[in-house]
Design a protein around this nucleic acid. Structure first.
Lengths: 231, 231
DNA sequence: ACAAAAGTGTTGCGGATACACCCATGC
DNA sequence: GCATGGGTGTATCCGCAACACTTTTGT
């Protein structure tokens, strides 16, 4: 067989990307879910997605879809899994590459999202989704939990400046269990990956809590010492 | 937009699967690598792969490709990652879904593999590979290491009956470090996921070593107790 | 008798957990 | 002055790492 026929005789497929978009707001982990505009399943709840174009990588397609609905670029995004069952999409055979993204919910373009029929829902509010999107969310949650335990990705969900209480409640929300306040502080501060700011946040207490900022350089230093970030 | 044009106007892509096939033989971790038959890069070293057909899922395609080169079905296989860069394949735009497989090297159909130009090579013997296949192997190794630490997948690489020394040397090979004999025995035996057989293996010592067999039921019991397999 | 691999226990240390009270401030 | 969340230290426990000698048997 020559090269031309090797490639030419292989079938071609529609390839989509679907994004599981996590946010953290009011102490709750939330997902950006939208109402589908086209048949089949028009009006049903679905993840944000789109087709991979000729001239873009799957990663680029995911970033494009994400920017299109949230107005944000340069956000934390990870490939989750490729979903390749023949009949997973009831409209046509579509192979879908799923990505999960972590965004600072306050930064995104809310009107833009609304325009696309997108809503932020807490985990327990998520309705039945089309196709295998429910499974994708399950898998994304598992991946988030695995990943958050050994990598400093929680910070991607918080504002740039945050209090230790906010950080702790984020991890409590991710792992769905309460964490001891003193032990948590000891652990995270011992890693020395955050800069303590002079500023205080007084929105949630009279006394005010110190603000911190994640410092990528300190994190690099930690890794150079051969230590691993672990919550 | 109606449904027909929604799907119809999206571009279609060649989708391939590539398999990183691990085996364990003579105390060494090995990979099944083949020489490519078609242009471009004919004669160069590559992973085992093939195109996803219309009527098969990506998982099925990977299983088909695997059986085609090794004669084995029902083997342990995991999706690794989807590689979607536009120019990753120099012959055409191909999106590739990579899988890694763990096989009992003794069980496979060696003549069949040879017929396909496939060879078992140790990690340090692996030559330069085409496209992004080298990166795929790197990623597969990292995934294997992560996965083997918390899931009983090492057994997939050993014969059904094996000695503790064999098991230990497998993990030493995977993690590229020596493990303390006593601590390893204590740890693995405390998990109680293996059945100790009466038989002994005398091929590697005068005294003979007890053979063990992995017992999926005991592993399920371990999980029910809420404990995790960990090496 | 000796070589070669199998098999076996104990100790110390470090990190994880459990736990309760004082502090600063706005109202 | 009191209610609210912020901030702090210690004792215990458990799992991991380090470590060396005896057993069996084929030659």
């Amino acid at each position: 067989m020559n090269a031309a026929s090797f490639y030419a005789k292989a079938p071609k497929h529609l390839v989509a990307v679907d994004c599981i978009i996590f946010g953290f707001d009011e102490g709750k982990l939330k997902l950006l879910i939208m109402q589908r505009k086209v048949a089949p399943m028009a009006g049903e709840w679905s993840l944000v997605g789109g087709f991979v174009q000729e001239d873009e990588s799957t990663n680029e397609a995911a970033a494009r879809v994400l920017e299109h609905t949230t107005g944000l670029d340069d956000i934390y995004m990870n490939q989750l899994h490729c979903y390749g069952d023949v009949n997973r999409d009831t409209g046509a055979r579509v192979i879908s590459v799923a990505y999960y993204a972590l965004i600072r919910i306050k930064n995104h373009d809310k009107p833009l999202a609304r325009e696309h029929g997108a809503h932020w829902l807490e985990l327990h509010e998520i309705p039945e989704l089309i196709f295998d999107h429910g499974k994708m969310i399950e898998d994304a949650l598992a991946a988030l939990r695995n990943n958050a335990q050994f990598h400093p990705i929680g910070f991607e969900l918080l504002p740039e400046k945050f209090t230790l209480s906010q950080l702790r409640s984020l991890y409590e929300e991710i792992y769905q269990k309460t964490l001891d306040k003193r032990n948590f502080r000891k652990k995270i501060l011992s890693l020395d990956v955050m800069e303590k700011l002079e500023e205080k946040d007084k929105t949630s207490s009279k006394k005010g809590a110190h603000l911190y900022r994640f410092d990528p350089e300190r994190y690099e230093a930690l890794k150079r010492k051969g230590l691993v970030f672990e919550i």
